[in-house]
């Protein structure tokens, strides 16, 4: 079963590992027919499309859970949503076979909506878009290197309403290459407090057209 869920508000402050435990316990509370791993510490066979950084909210996370019995997507949603805390909510679910690895491979981009209270970022965004190369320090587990982030920004716009800037951005997100919105925002406006919400995952059709990742996952089923 794959399910799309939101992680909003207070829920944005716990880690990916915490999310795994939280979802696992929710499924146990809901009495869902989940499959457990073998071994001394059995856990629910549960995977996520990708991790979400601590502090980011999302309306489009995707989980994939292996079931041990039959249950309809509608029943799944009703039961899991009845036991999830405010801010975590599954919006849709679908039965698919072996989805997680396939979903990861299909993913090409992620979309974000950003709010920066009290800051006008429109000039910074305009300046960024005018450049062909923007170098930024990208940290990974083992090393830090300078990379050109400009080509990884597939769409970016900003509107300032006198109180806050509202940005939308589509950033590259593949297994091999991914630009985190925090890094882009740090480059655009260092030290400015932003609320970031992930709003979509995308895959590409053979003709190059964007399609929602969840839909792409369902197509495979």
């Amino acid at each position: 079963m794959i399910a799309e869920f939101e992680k909003m508000g207070r829920m944005s402050w716990f880690s990916h590992l915490d999310l795994q435990n939280t979802m696992q316990r929710a499924m146990r509370r809901a009495g869902l027919p989940v499959r457990y791993s073998q071994g001394f510490n059995p856990h629910v066979n549960l995977a996520f499309a990708t991790a979400l950084s601590v502090g980011l909210q999302s309306r489009c996370e995707i989980l994939d859970v292996e079931l041990a019995g039959e249950i309809s997507p509608e029943e799944f949603l009703t039961r899991i949503n009845a036991v999830l805390p405010e801010g975590l909510k599954c919006s849709r679910a679908a039965l698919v076979e072996d989805a997680a690895p396939a979903l990861m491979a299909l993913m090409t981009e992620a979309e974000y909506a950003v709010e920066a209270p009290g800051a006008d970022l429109s000039a910074a965004v305009e300046g960024f878009l005018a450049l062909e190369e923007v170098m930024a320090e990208k940290k990974s587990k083992s090393k830090t290197r300078m990379v050109n982030i400009r080509p990884m920004v597939h769409a970016l716009d900003c509107a300032f309403d006198g109180e806050k800037s509202v940005l939308t951005m589509i950033l590259e997100q593949t297994n091999a290459n991914c630009l985190k919105p925090e890094l882009l925002l740090q480059t655009l406006a260092p030290g400015v407090f932003c609320r970031i919400v992930r709003t979509g995952f995308y895959a590409r059709k053979q003709d190059g057209a964007r399609v929602g990742l969840f839909e792409a996952g369902m197509d495979k089923a």
Binding site: R10, W13, S15, R25, R29, V54, G55, G87, F193
Partner: peptide
């Protein structure tokens, strides 16, 4: 409180909202 959380260790200590 929210703007402080990104700069501290283990922010989930301060946000409540648990089951």
């Amino acid at each position: 409180i929210e703007p402080l959380l990104a700069g501290v260790s283990k922010p989930a200590r301060y946000t409540g909202g648990e089951v």
